[in-house]
């Protein structure tokens, strides 16, 4: 939540978001990775893209002076850099040792 705009009117950020971001949309990716989603009717997909709440919310934040486009771009860049760094770390790390299959099932070793 630290990346949220600091001021969202007089309402606490969480309350504000619960009224603004309703998880009520068609997901734009297919059912699973590797599935090209050919079965999604083109008009349904086009309507889903048009109704995508993310760009709408971004436009609203800028229009209502909660953040500037540059500030939102900076947030996007920061998140992308964090993901890129995590991906690079994962891809460049050696495979885990087989003994790790016994680790982290519980907080404490039990046997």
């Amino acid at each position: 939540m630290t990346r949220l705009p600091k001021s969202v009117g007089n309402e606490p950020a969480v309350y504000f978001l619960s009224n603004m971001l309703r998880p009520n949309r068609v997901r734009r990716i297919p059912h699973l990775i590797g599935d090209m989603g050919e079965y999604i009717p083109k008009d349904v997909y086009a309507a889903a893209v048009a109704a995508d709440p993310y760009p709408k919310f971004r436009t609203k934040l800028v229009a209502e002076n909660h953040a500037t486009a540059a500030e939102l771009d900076a947030i996007d860049a920061e998140i992308k850099a964090e993901i890129d760094e995590a991906e690079a770390f994962a891809m460049n790390s050696p495979p885990p040792d087989a003994r790790e299959v016994k680790r982290d099932v519980y907080a404490y070793e039990i046997a």
Binding site: P95, P96, D97, A98, R99, E100, V101
Partner: peptide, 8 residues
């Protein structure tokens, strides 16, 4: 991870 899946 493949080595862990094999060990499982």
């Amino acid at each position: 991870a493949p080595p862990l899946e094999a060990a499982f």
